[in-house]
Design a protein around this nucleic acid. Structure first.
Lengths: 318, 318
DNA sequence: CTGTTAGCGCTTTCAT
DNA sequence: ATGAAAGCGCTAACAG
């Protein structure tokens, strides 16, 4: 690779002039400008970004540590993020991490000058990070430092209101191992019930970390005495699992039981779509990039993103 | 961030000694060693990798341009790749690209000193790249430059042999828009038929780029005169689409028609798994990393990876 | 064993 | 308008 020295020599000017032409380009005689341009062209010269980085103390690289277990959802994040980042001349440095140790190791390796900022996405374990230029996205500890959180209470409330309006008044809730814990989800759930003057039935709620299929089985086993006609689950994978299990017990979905995903929905041919809350990855990415671009980082604090209610088209249903 | 100067000052030694302690660490008096270590610890000093990169002319970054349209499969690639790369102190710089223009732009932005090498994955369009340190993975033009290709002929032959042994002798083939074109697939298909003394029926083959659902419909419309009891499709998404369509026409899968995916299979609860060829992302990643690690790049040429035959467990089937 | 020096490729004063 | 020189943070020769 040719360097700025080669260009300056060939063009018969100094390094400084070459630099001026290729960057600011102001206050340079047209003749020299042309000479530089020609020389650069001839040598296929491209400024070395590493040297520039050393000087500017910034690389344009954003580290993204993906701690999501739902690998399916990760791709959505990554695609949206990369699109937005590259539009702003930023690069996405990808790492996957499955536990706190791996996250910390990745952090260690990314924050030695390589990355200007780091994003941690979807961690379902405590992190206790306070670093100013690390953003937590959909992570467990959103209270500390900068973060983008999903409004799980809003999601649950929306879900319940929708289900209730559909005539589903017995809504079961299974194992929502959401970022901010179970509380927000329960909060939204209860709020919707209250607003609709519906009683709260503790037996329909399964919030412990144990297997969600066991939880559903408990519901099914008790279904003679404990009625439910709707089921709230954490995400599209949980939904798919639940639907399979329900159908194995001759429960029709959604006729007998309407399954609602609190985060995303599977969109595959041959698989009936279900109502769900979906978070706009694009909106999230835009938000993140906006934050990265303003130098005075500390202002974000915690930003809460609300999801859209997605209603499947039921017109074709028998 | 503190620099090597801060450390040397605090430790009362020269930069060189600090560098020696933190890298090679040989031929340094124990006293100075301790002083340096203590000072570094105190200042939380971490060598700036950008400065190191400028000197060594290598960043440890590997650009990965993901041109795959099956976003589902991309994640598999990325995860495996990242795991292997990070084990070798390399970083994955991610870009998505949907056409030649975007690929070229990404290439432009990554090869200015930022990345030591670049991978292009899953491009289904001509690229014409000859650069020594760009690897094409599962791309269309695998003949030029370094590349890792999937053995599609082997996959098709394996698939057909499996199907024939299962008693399926009328095997339809739809629209395999594979990396190396359709030829290898057809080659493998024909080879298997020949080896089993079966006739080749041109009417069962649909290789034009038009809609695969139209192709399947043609097959279904002609199914009174043109029998087929197996169907080869390009990937798991095509398979899912095909299965849905078949079932809508009262064809049972796999009883009436066995669908076989030539690349990967969906693995979701409630969805019957189908026989498929699956390429080990781990093997591929290992191969790539091995190649990246040997400095004398040019030796790879073209490497061909064969996929595994995955047979679904049919014991529980009624 | 350790400090001094040079230099990786670039940008940016500061003179001229 | 432009060149010389300094310096970003680091490592590697070269002396001592």
């Amino acid at each position: 690779m040719s360097t700025i020295n080669d260009v300056s020599r060939l063009a018969g000017v100094s390094k400084a002039t070459v630099s001026r032409v290729l960057s600011g380009s102001r206050g340079v005689k047209e003749a020299s400008r042309q000479a530089v341009l020609k020389a650069a062209e001839e040598l296929k010269y491209r400024p070395n970004v590493i040297a520039q980085s050393l000087l500017s103390q910034s690389t344009g690289c954003i580290g993204v540590i993906c701690a999501q277990d739902n690998i399916n959802q990760s791709t959505g994040y990554l695609y949206a993020l990369e699109k937005h980042l590259s539009q702003h001349q930023k690069h996405l440095l990808l790492r996957f991490a499955n536990n706190k140790g791996e996250v910390m190791q990745a952090l260690e390796e990314l924050t030695c000058g390589l990355c200007d900022d780091v994003l941690i996405i979807g961690a379902r374990f405590e992190l206790n990070i306070s670093d100013e230029n690390i953003i937590l996205v959909d992570c467990m500890d959103g209270d500390t430092g900068n973060s983008i959180q999903f409004d799980h209470a809003f999601a649950a409330e929306t879900a319940c209101n929708f289900l209730i309006k559909q005539g589903r008044r017995q809504i079961a809730l299974i194992n929502p191992e959401h970022a901010g814990g179970v509380e927000p989800v329960l909060l939204g759930y209860k709020r919707a019930l209250e607003n609709n003057f519906l009683p709260f039935n503790r037996n329909l709620i399964f919030t412990d970390a144990s297997s969600s299929s066991v939880a559903l089985q408990v519901l099914l086993n008790n279904s003679t005495t404990l009625n439910f006609n709707a089921l709230l689950v954490a995400d599209e994978l949980e939904a798919q699992r639940a639907i399979t299990q329900l159908q194995a017990f001759n429960k029709s979905v959604p006729d007998d039981i309407m399954v609602f995903s609190l985060a995303g929905s599977l969109n595959l041919p041959g698989i009936p779509t279900i109502p769900a809350i979906e978070y706009s990855m694009d909106a999230m990415a835009a938000r993140i990039v906006a934050w990265l671009n303003q130098k005075t980082h500390s202002v974000l604090g915690s930003y809460v993103l609300r999801g859209d209610l997605i209603i499947p088209d039921m017109s074709g249903r028998k």
